[in-house]
């Protein structure tokens, strides 16, 4: 049952997933080319000075890609379900509805984690070629909230799509935007805040259950 469900989810998501992977790859290629360009034109020591002493954000092209990935995957995964209320059929399967929704969302979550791990590793390698480990840590620390935005955006977008009543969707949207905005405002996040981002981000995954509950019971 579970594997059949996952296959169905995969059929919905795959092209979006490959698309987002390709987009990430393009952005990372751009960053890599740009790095080589900076080193050539600013000289290595000039570039190092800009990064180490002035905090030059040479990797900012990747900033909004996790956000976009989260939103796109949530849309391709959940909007077909809302079309003609197909989710109703899914929810009539002999599986408990909350479990089913969590299974659906865990699949998208795992794909996003896969994508984000790839992004992290590649950025690590690209930056590591030109710059020492201290800078790599700085880059990854800056990257982390952006990745968490991707996951959180996925969970919240899914909850917004599953929510059957427009009025309630409109309530959820501004709070989602506000919440995601905070992640982008975190410049140089302290370790405590990073831990909060992880927990709060993961907890938003449960919001889909509340929307699903509205859906199943047709609460208006």
């Amino acid at each position: 049952m579970y594997s059949a469900l996952l296959y169905k989810e995969w059929l919905k998501i795959r092209w979006a997933f490959f698309g987002m992977a390709l987009l990430s790859l393009l952005a990372l290629t751009y960053i890599a080319l740009n790095l080589a360009y900076y080193v050539e034109f600013m000289t290595a020591k000039g570039f190092w000075g800009n990064v180490i002493l002035l905090g030059f954000p040479f990797f900012s092209e990747i900033e909004y890609i996790p956000l976009l990935s989260g939103i796109v995957i949530a849309i391709v995964q959940f909007s077909p379900e809302m079309n003609l209320s197909r989710l109703k059929l899914t929810l009539h399967l002999p599986v408990e509805e909350n479990k089913l929704l969590m299974q659906m969302i865990s699949f998208g979550f795992m794909l996003l984690i896969l994508l984000f791990v790839l992004i992290t590793l590649m950025l690590w390698i690209i930056v590591g070629i030109y710059l020492p480990v201290e800078v790599v840590i700085f880059v990854l620390n800056s990257l982390f909230p952006w990745l968490m935005v991707g996951l959180t955006a996925y969970f919240l977008t899914a909850a917004i799509i599953i929510e059957p009543v427009w009025a309630r969707r409109l309530i959820l949207v501004p709070f989602t935007l506000g919440f995601l905005d905070l992640f982008f405002n975190a410049v140089n996040p302290h370790a405590q805040l990073t831990v909060f981002f992880i927990f709060s981000g993961l907890l938003t995954s449960t919001l889909i259950l509340f929307s699903g509950y509205h859906f199943k019971r047709g609460i208006k």
Binding site: N98, L203, T204, T206, L207, I208, L209, F210, Y213
Partner: peptide, 9 residues
């Protein structure tokens, strides 16, 4: 779980 979800909301 739904109640918990509501609390998170």
């Amino acid at each position: 779980l739904v109640k918990f979800s509501r609390i998170i909301y």
